[in-house]
Every structure is written in C-alpha cells, then in structure tokens.
Write a protein that binds this DNA or RNA. Structure first.
Lengths: 216, 216
DNA sequence: GCGATTCTGTAACATTTGCTACACGGGAAA
DNA sequence: TTTCCCGTGTAGCAAATGTTACAGAATCGC
C-alpha cells in the first residue's frame, strides 16, 4: 500500500511539519502485522525504524538460556529507541519485538533518521522524546524487577496490559505471563490462583479477567 | 578554572572537531569532585550535562522506600544519557549519580546539547553513541537482576568494579555492596563469606580482594 | 465420538533470599 | 586505657521462589 499524504496528515498533523510528512510519504513503508508477528529478534539487523499507528508491540529481553522478560510496550505513536540507537553503526538488535495485537505501522529507513534530525526540528524533538520515554520505560522495568515481589509484579503487569488495550479481559496463557515476568508457568499459576482467591482476578482457560478491586 | 583549548584538544582531539572544541572551552565548566560527591539526586533539576575526563561515576536507581540498585558506571569520556534525555523539557532526574572516585568532568549547559546536534556532526555522533551505550548498560543491568542469582551478581559486580578501576582490591563495606545489589548487608556478608571459602575473594575490614580464580 | 494436545491446578520439596538477633573485634575518640 | 561505634560473622527461622511430578479439564483435529 502506498502512503497517502492526507492519511499521514491525519495521523501526524500535530506532530510533524508538512515537508517531513511529504518525505515520510515517499520513503516510509506502511505495514500491517497480525498479533504474534515477530518484528525483531536478537541478532537481527535493523534496517528500518518503526512508528506505530495503532495496535501495540511488546519489547522483550531474552537471556542466553532462552528465558525472557518483558521490558515495555509500544503503543500510540510510539517508536522504538532500540532501533534508533542502532542507526549509527547498523548494530544488531538486542531485544525481541512482537506484535501484541493487530498493529499498523510505518517503517522508516534508518539512514533517514539521522538525516532528518537536523533537517526537521519536529523530527529531532520526536527522536529525543522517544529516547526519553524508552529510558523511563526501562527504569520502570528495573523498578519492578528489583524492588517488587512477583505477586505485585503480576498485578502491575495486568494493569499495564489493561491500560495498553483498554479492556479488562486478556486472552493469554499462564505460560506466556510467566515468560513476561521471567518466571515459570507453575509459579504464575500459583500466584494467579492466589489473586483469584483474593477476588482480584477471574480465571478461565486462555483468559484472565482483571476485577475492579485490582485496578490501580 | 578556565578551560584551555589546548587541554581540550588533548582530551577530545579525536572525538570532536575544532569549532566544537572552541565552543566547549567557552561554555563548558570544568569540575573536580571527590569520591562520594553526589552529582545528582532524584528530583534534582538537570542544568548541565557532564562529560567525564577521568575517574568514574556510579548511577543508581532508588525506589520509594530508599532502597537502591546500581544501574551502571560512567567512565572514560562517557556522558550520561539520563541527563541528555532531560534536555528537552527540563525534567527532573530519576536517578542518583555519585562519584566513585576522584573525578574530573566538564559540565555543558543543557541548551547547548540540542543546538550542537545540528551544528556539529561529531557532537551528533557523540550524543547518539551515548544513548546507545546507556541503553546497553541498562539492558545489562536488567539481565543481571532478572536472570541471575545474587551470588553471580555479586561476582559480576566485583568484576565490573575491577574493570572500572583497574585494580583487584576495593575499599568498600558489605553494607555498600548490598545497596548496589539492592539487598541487605547480612545477605551480602553471607555470600561474600561463601565466595571466600571458594577461594574467589579475600576479605578484610573495609576491603575486598578479588582473586584470580574469580576474574572473568 | 475419540485420541491427542494444550492449559491449568496443585502437592511436595529444594533452594534462595530476607529478617532478627546477637557476638566479636578493630579502631577511633575521650 | 577505656569506652564506644562500626563493620563483620553467623545462627536460626520466615518468606518467596524454583522445580518436579502428576492429574484433570478444555479444546482441537480427525
């Protein structure tokens, strides 16, 4: 699909200036990916920087043994700073990026990112803002992992999911949740059951409902 | 002390172009701080971005209850991305920065950082490199906390300290080490004793020596 | 329907980490 | 010297998390 300038204006009108939108239309590559689509794997080379139009993408960190931990979500008009940092010397990715739902995005060739920083003040601002947000996200992830127990982290994770998707019911397995928390399925099940007994969630197969008492 | 252009050329000759060095000399503020000096506290406003000339600075994250965790060290000609991100809208610091030894640095007013990005390609490159390095550091911190047990993290921390200061003996208390690992003094003592029994370290009051078998 | 697969629940136990309490020793201060 | 504070060692128990093992329930493919 070719990028339409009117469409871009709807999306980015307030964020980006006109000339930048024109260039975006020229070089940007519109994509739609389904839930579960793997946008990036550790070791993969980064050729383009994504800007999300809708949907959400979860960014995970994997260790050598295949264990994983959720770092943060991308949503709204977010971009990924990890890919920004890779623009300089075409480094390999150190993270995994997976679409958490059906997601629409624009992919921008890496060489444009640096070029536009000086050409368009609005782009420079966008890049700096992106870095700042991602740093905050990473610090938040560290806070969770370093300072909170698993049950709190689990509740926190469900709350973040709620904010991300705007709904209180998630289609997800305990296994998957365990991965995002970097723990085992059994531990996750145990804690979820505990939360259910406390009236904070309602469990069924492939589904978790966050109840009002658990929302913060 | 006034900044001397010859001095700057010695330090940054290969990194920065001539005109940038001149501006650096004009607006940069040379500082020397002793070990333990607190460069930044959470909530503090960031008015300048530091570039280290020598020494090292440790960057810590504190939670609401006063617990802390080490994020990473600055050394060499490093700068702090946390302060870079704050340039846009004068945000408050979210981290603590403490000189880990006697440290010399140049403080650059935040308003110059963004201005120079477009003016000097070498500065743009420096800023992007800084972001990239700090991201890697934060990811490393997350790896440690999320995927490793305390004994491994302790050994890892001692190894990093060794690389940072270039020596194998550290003047540090168990209490302080515990803080950096976000755990208690007792646990740290226990693990250190365990490492001593394994012949990996040698302990004495206020002092820890990392033995050859523990260096990785 | 029926077997296979996936997801969940749970017990039992091991390991890791946190916390409390106290003893000891070195060295600084009086 | 004596006193006192700080840093360390360590026991003992509590809590949190990891691991193994297995059973039953839901769903899918045939």
């Amino acid at each position: 699909m070719k990028l339409d300038i009117t469409f871009l204006h709807q999306q980015f009108g307030k964020l980006f200036e006109g000339h930048l939108l024109e260039e975006l239309a020229q070089v940007g590559n519109y994509m739609e990916v389904e839930e579960g689509f793997v946008l990036m794997r550790p070791g993969g080379y980064i050729r383009s920087v994504p800007i999300l139009l809708s949907g959400s993408v979860k960014i995970m960190r994997a260790d050598a043994d295949g264990r994983e931990a959720l770092l943060y979500y991308l949503g709204g008009l977010d971009s990924c700073a990890m890919s920004l940092t890779c623009c300089i010397d075409r480094k390999q990715s150190e993270i995994t990026a997976i679409a958490d739902e059906k997601t629409r995005l624009i992919a921008i060739p890496v060489e444009k990112v640096e070029e536009w920083v000086c050409k368009y003040p609005s782009w420079k601002h966008f890049v700096f803002m992106t870095y700042q947000k991602r740093f905050e996200d990473l610090l938040g992830a560290i806070d969770q992992i370093a300072f909170h127990k698993l049950d709190e982290r689990l509740l926190g994770l469900l709350n973040r999911k709620m904010k991300q998707c705007g709904c209180t019911t998630f289609t997800i397995t305990h296994e998957e949740l365990g991965q995002e928390l970097a723990t085992s399925r059994e531990v996750t099940s145990r804690l979820l059951k505990q939360l259910e007994r406390l009236g904070k969630v309602k469990l069924s197969r492939n589904k978790i409902e966050l109840l009002a008492t658990a929302i913060s």
